[in-house]
Write a protein that binds this DNA or RNA. Sequence first.
DNA 1: ATTATAAACGCAAATATTTGAAAATGCAAG
DNA 2: CTTGCATTTTCAAATATTTGCGTTTATAAT
Lengths: 137, 137
Amino acid sequence: MKTSSVELIILDLLSQEQAHLTAQEIYQQLRSRLPAVNPSTVYRALERMAHAGKISVSDMGRGAMVYEAVGGERHHHLVCQECGAVMTIEDQPVNELFRYLEKQYHFEMITNHLILFGRCQNCQSPVQVLKAETSKE
Amino acid sequence: MKTSSVELIILDLLSQEQAHLTAQEIYQQLRSRLPAVNPSTVYRALERMAHAGKISVSDMGRGAMVYEAVGGERHHHLVCQECGAVMTIEDQPVNELFRYLEKQYHFEMITNHLILFGRCQNCQSPVQVLKAETSKE
DNA sequence: ATTATAAACGCAAATATTTGAAAATGCAAG
DNA sequence: CTTGCATTTTCAAATATTTGCGTTTATAAT
Ligand SMILES: [Zn+2]
Ligand SMILES: [Zn+2]
Ligand SMILES: [Zn+2]
Ligand SMILES: [Zn+2]
């Protein structure tokens, strides 16, 4: 395998904490370090890296896919469709479902960064929140 | 609300069984019925309908989002990243995770068509399959 | 039927993304 | 070091998608 300079910089960009960047954001930031880089180089590098499992690709409701470096704690997100708030959730409950599906369907899971959409507590209507509160007790 | 003719035709297209169509596919098929329709009309209609919950939007690894009519049996899919095979799975186990996360995070889930990527049995290496087989017993 | 209003549409321009083909580059064998 | 090969990069062109804005159209009130 060849060590592409663009790949290295992309990985560095994505290593900034909590980075979930779109292709455009990556391209723009890359230009400050490699002013003459061509957009297609970036798109192709991202495609290659995603296929190699170095980065994950997710739709987080930002209008374009976001890329994240693979390697830290495995995690997933809940994204509010009203206000855009992003919550991070731990892997365990998701992992249990995945293991179940793997056995059930003889399927080897690759997805490792799950995004689920909904409404955060702030954006739920007061009656909904009330209902949830009372049913808890 | 205005009843848009384009929306009606899109819903009709998406009502064909198992339809998971990209914006382009929808645009092309729409042209055979409304030859002069403008692409931006289609993109905007899809955006509107998704926001209204009439259709779901999912990345199924086809290079563009696919749209599906909401309304039939709630289901989800496993998509093989090697060969593109699409398996349909029932809602129950997924639903259990969703209900758990809703309580745990005070989050109201909207996602109703989950896509998970991996490798189908055919595309797993022989040793992997063998391992899975034996660990089962 | 007329009118007012908001929603949907078309059009053209701006962006973003993909694709094919040639040139450049890194790596390793000779 | 030189050669050969595979990978990466660039460039230009093709596609796809988004956006601003003026026009049309459906709906409901007058
Ligand atoms: Zn993340
Ligand atoms: Zn919110
Ligand atoms: Zn489906
Ligand atoms: Zn497969």
